[in-house]
């Protein structure tokens, strides 16, 4: 699975300060750390950056040349000029993050990705907002995102469709829908488009100490449904361990075996069963509870792990 490191993100206060002060060392260090931790791609989220987007990207690309030359870079902004600046400097080993199905974005963004032979992340999002059901999201992908990519000459292996992940805290009923959207995206056509998610959205507004567990379990389920890539925190060692465990089919510990079982169950279009889990092991029990919450079978609360 393609792991896109999310840590250079303008929402993070340290990133904001470092960018303002043009602290190149900070970005070199953060990019290297993510690469060493196993990231395949470094995402550069600079926010909308309407005024000086191009200048900021140019400066960041310099930092990345020093830090991680040759890696794939994801240019993450709504400022298309800034993205194009990045693509010109970095070359085709890049991702355009992102277009949506909104008319103007869909008109303007895909040709830029095609021109530079970059990958394109395309969100299942229209002007009217995020559709909640899997069918509606597939509809957007099939009727808008995929045809437009084909039209401008982006091959399916370069199109990363993002079903959009919503938080389990408040929009719980849509959390299982995204899993099914990934599954359907991989089945509706041949060749199928690639799929990508912004993983940590699932645990937005959840107390910090509980977020990594939700992220790990949800990613396992999404991988089971066929997910190709995720924007995630590569510095989360347990998360990276789970991905590696699944990819190498490592069942050497009870917890690793359980993640593998969960992956296999979802891949087989089944649900994790109580007999798959040793409930007397607290680590396994909390995975079981988290699966129930992510499938919307038990209502989420900040203390769901207690019961």
């Amino acid at each position: 699975m393609l792991k896109i490191g999310e840590n250079i993100h303008i929402i993070a206060p340290s990133v904001k300060v470092a960018l303002k002060e043009r602290d190149g060392g900070f970005f070199v260090d953060l990019a290297r750390k993510q690469k060493e931790a196993g990231a395949d791609v470094i995402d550069l989220n600079i926010g909308p950056r309407k005024k000086d987007g191009a200048e900021v990207v140019e400066w960041l690309v310099d930092c990345m040349q020093e830090a991680v030359a040759g890696m794939t870079i994801s240019f993450d902004t709504t400022n298309l000029t800034a993205i194009e600046t990045g693509l010109k400097l970095w070359g085709s080993n890049a991702i355009v993050n992102s277009t949506s199905a909104e008319e103007e974005r869909l008109e303007q963004v895909p040709p830029v990705a095609a021109k530079y032979d970059a990958k394109l992340i395309a969100l299942c999002l229209e002007k009217s907002g995020i559709p909640v059901g899997a069918d509606a999201r597939i509809g957007i992908a099939m009727e808008k995102l995929i045809p437009r990519a084909e039209e401008v000459g982006i091959p399916m292996e370069n199109l990363l469709v993002d079903p959009l992940i919503l938080t389990v805290s408040g929009t719980q009923e849509y959390v299982p829908e995204a899993i099914e959207t990934v599954r359907m995206l991989k089945m509706v056509m041949d060749p199928a488009p690639m799929t990508v998610v912004g993983l940590s959205n699932v645990s937005n507004q959840v107390p910090n100490k509980m977020r990594p567990l939700l992220d790990r379990v949800y990613l396992t389920m999404l991988m089971g449904a066929g997910l190709d890539s995720a924007i995630l925190n590569p510095l989360d060692k347990k998360l990276m361990g789970v991905i590696q465990g699944i990819e190498t089919r490592d069942d050497s510990t009870p917890v690793k075996a359980l993640y593998l079982k969960l992956f296999d169950r979802v891949a087989g279009m089944e649900q994790l069963q109580p007999e798959d889990v040793d409930m007397s092991d607290p680590l396994q029990a909390e995975i079981w509870k988290t699966v129930q919450v992510l499938l919307n079978q038990v209502i989420y609360t900040d203390s769901y792990l207690q019961f």
Binding site: S169, G170, Q172, I299, Y300, T301, D302, S303, Q306, F307
Partner: peptide, 9 residues
């Protein structure tokens, strides 16, 4: 729903 359940807890 989440708050209802949480307060019972």
């Amino acid at each position: 729903v989440n708050l209802s359940k949480q307060l019972v807890i």
